[in-house]
């Protein structure tokens, strides 16, 4: 009634004004291109396909599970075929439409072969909105070391599980169906 509330409000704002000069936490913004916030390990943006050694030998076996699970259906997979026309366990085409993908991470969760993961890369702007935003297989593939670098905790866990599975499959005469083995984890 006497204008005290108004004056108190002004005191709050002037305090914030001077805090930006005196206090270390005064300015809250980060000057983006030069400075960056630390990346969270679980941060997910866009899928990548991982390979162990050579970029041609992706872990992906073109099973089409992720394409079927993807809610907006942004993944297109075509199985590779050898000279005789027999289907191979690798993709000929693996396209992800960036304009459709909604970064939900369901592909990563449902993949039984540890082949597709969400990357941390987020500066993905392009000048061409037609072709450049359809990510081909070559552009999606990253080495496993890259994944180990961005998500060390997850990578450790996955490595351990894969090593265990490998010994198990080596012991068994017939390889266990991958999906069943995955469900037990």
């Amino acid at each position: 009634m006497w204008g005290t509330g108004v004056l108190k409000g002004m005191a709050v704002t002037i305090k914030n004004f001077f805090d930006t000069y005196t206090s270390k936490n005064g300015i809250f913004t980060v000057e983006y291109p030069e400075k960056r916030l630390p990346e969270k390990e679980r941060f997910r943006n866009f899928p990548i396909l991982v390979y162990d050694e050579k970029p041609e030998e992706l872990r992906c076996v073109a099973c089409d599970i992720c394409a079927k699970e993807c809610p907006p259906k942004c993944i297109t997979i075509v199985k590779a075929k050898d000279a005789q026309g027999k289907p191979l366990k690798q993709p000929e085409v693996f396209d992800i439409d960036f304009t459709v993908c909604m970064n939900c991470g369901i592909c990563e969760e449902t993949c039984p072969f540890d082949a597709i993961y969400m990357d941390h890369e987020f500066e993905l702007a392009e000048y061409d909105r037609m072709d450049a935003l359809i990510y081909k297989k070559e552009r999606l593939s990253r080495p496993w070391t890259h994944f180990e670098k961005i998500r060390p905790t997850d990578a450790k866990e996955i490595n351990e599980r894969r090593a265990k599975d490998a010994t198990k499959t080596a012991a068994a005469v017939k390889p266990a169906p991958p999906q069943a083995s995955n469900q037990q984890t």
Binding site: T13, N16, F17, D19, T20, G26, I27, T29, E31
Partner: peptide, 13 residues
């Protein structure tokens, strides 16, 4: 600049 500082920002830089 002033309004930016009041709002914990830097303002044009």
């Amino acid at each position: 600049k002033v309004v930016g500082r009041i709002q914990n920002r830097i303002g044009p830089n």
